[in-house]
Simulated assay, not measured.
Amino acid sequence: MYKLIAIDIDDTLINDDKEVTPATQQALEQAVAKGTVVTLATGRAYASAQAIARQTGLNVPIITYQGALVKNLMDEKVLYERYVPVEAARKLHDYCIEHNLHLQTYIDDKLYARELNQHLIDYTTLNRTQYYIEPDFAKLMELPTPKMLIIDDPAFLDELQPILRELLGDSVHITKSKPEFLEIMHKEGTKGAALTFLANHFGCDLKDTIAVGDSWNDHEMLEAAGLGVAMGNAIEPLKAIANYITASNNEDGVKEVIEKFILNPEQASV
């Protein structure tokens, strides 16, 4: 029996209208009633993710910032946190200034950028996030941050990724949550590391966990989980490593997973 399921938010739990459908909501509640730990695993900031978690009635720790922060919903106690190393943050800042790239960071769960531009407007509109402008952006590099984010053209970011890997070294984890979002965390700030931590926290074997996602930033948790599930709308590389492919986020794919593997496991076959 699966004891824990970790679900990505964007393009996974929520549909293209940014909603959790009543059918999926009911499935979440049924899974919880059966004793399964249902949690979220997202690249979003805690402030953004917790609003969705509370709407869906969850009261467990949730995985945020790609796995760099695991925090209780009830008392907001931090269970797991990994910050971008200061030296890496400084190097990334200097590189982005030199090449005129949009970089944003998160301090105390607040989003900061150096200046207001269309990238920031589009991002905060998409995630319904408040932002703060800090002209003296360099000083923020000295403060603990779970995630830094570059927004740009997807093809350009694909070229930039290996450059930053060489520049920043193996102290950081670099991934994409969307084609235009390149995200930089501590090397242990992955959804896979956070899922492993949560499984231990709940005394649950990893083989008894399910992970559901749609994008490449989900691959570590799909590989760590006993059952890795890709959404029908997932990118092809994620589908290639998944144990199971469910329906899309607009077709209640999460509901299908819960019904098949948690509510009716005797009928399940991968």
Rank of each mutant, 00 (worst) to 15 (best):
residue 1 M to R: 11
residue 1 M to C: 07
residue 2 Y to N: 06
residue 3 K to T: 04
residue 5 I to V: 15
residue 6 A to N: 03
residue 8 D to L: 11
residue 9 I to T: 06
residue 12 T to K: 12
residue 14 I to W: 05
residue 17 D to H: 10
residue 18 K to C: 07
residue 20 V to A: 11
residue 20 V to P: 04
residue 23 A to T: 10
residue 24 T to F: 05
residue 34 K to F: 06
residue 36 T to W: 08
residue 37 V to R: 09
residue 42 T to E: 05
residue 42 T to H: 06
residue 46 Y to E: 02
residue 47 A to I: 06
residue 47 A to P: 03
residue 51 A to G: 02
residue 52 I to D: 07
residue 54 R to W: 04
residue 55 Q to V: 04
residue 55 Q to R: 13
residue 57 G to N: 07
residue 57 G to M: 07
residue 58 L to R: 04
residue 63 I to P: 03
residue 64 T to L: 05
residue 66 Q to Y: 09
residue 67 G to D: 04
residue 68 A to C: 08
residue 70 V to H: 06
residue 71 K to F: 08
residue 71 K to V: 06
residue 72 N to C: 13
residue 73 L to K: 09
residue 73 L to Y: 10
residue 76 E to T: 09
residue 76 E to G: 09
residue 78 V to T: 15
residue 79 L to N: 11
residue 80 Y to N: 07
residue 80 Y to D: 09
residue 81 E to V: 14
residue 82 R to I: 03
residue 82 R to C: 08
residue 84 V to H: 00
residue 86 V to E: 14
residue 86 V to W: 05
residue 92 L to T: 00
residue 92 L to F: 00
residue 93 H to N: 10
residue 95 Y to W: 14
residue 97 I to D: 06
residue 102 H to I: 02
residue 105 T to G: 09
residue 111 L to C: 12
residue 115 E to D: 10
residue 118 Q to T: 12
residue 122 D to N: 15
residue 125 T to E: 13
residue 126 L to V: 07
residue 127 N to I: 08
residue 127 N to G: 14
residue 132 Y to E: 13
residue 132 Y to C: 11
residue 133 I to F: 01
residue 135 P to W: 00
residue 136 D to A: 12
residue 137 F to H: 00
residue 150 I to K: 01
residue 151 I to L: 15
residue 151 I to F: 05
residue 156 F to P: 04
residue 161 Q to L: 15
residue 165 R to W: 07
residue 168 L to A: 11
residue 171 S to Y: 10
residue 173 H to F: 15
residue 174 I to V: 11
residue 175 T to I: 15
residue 178 K to R: 14
residue 181 F to A: 09
residue 184 I to P: 00
residue 190 T to F: 10
residue 190 T to N: 08
residue 192 G to T: 07
residue 195 L to S: 06
residue 195 L to R: 07
residue 204 C to F: 12
residue 205 D to L: 13
residue 208 D to C: 08
residue 211 A to S: 07
residue 212 V to N: 08
residue 213 G to L: 06
residue 215 S to K: 09
residue 217 N to K: 05
residue 218 D to C: 06
residue 219 H to D: 12
residue 221 M to D: 02
residue 222 L to H: 08
residue 224 A to Y: 03
residue 225 A to F: 01
residue 227 L to A: 02
residue 231 M to V: 01
residue 232 G to L: 00
residue 233 N to S: 01
residue 234 A to F: 01
residue 234 A to K: 10
residue 236 E to K: 14
residue 236 E to V: 09
residue 236 E to N: 13
residue 240 A to L: 11
residue 243 N to T: 11
residue 244 Y to D: 05
residue 245 I to A: 05
residue 246 T to Y: 02
residue 247 A to G: 05
residue 247 A to Q: 13
residue 249 N to F: 00
residue 251 E to M: 13
residue 252 D to L: 07
residue 252 D to Y: 09
residue 256 E to N: 13
residue 260 K to T: 14
residue 261 F to R: 03
residue 262 I to M: 03
residue 263 L to F: 01
residue 264 N to C: 05
residue 264 N to R: 11
residue 267 Q to H: 12
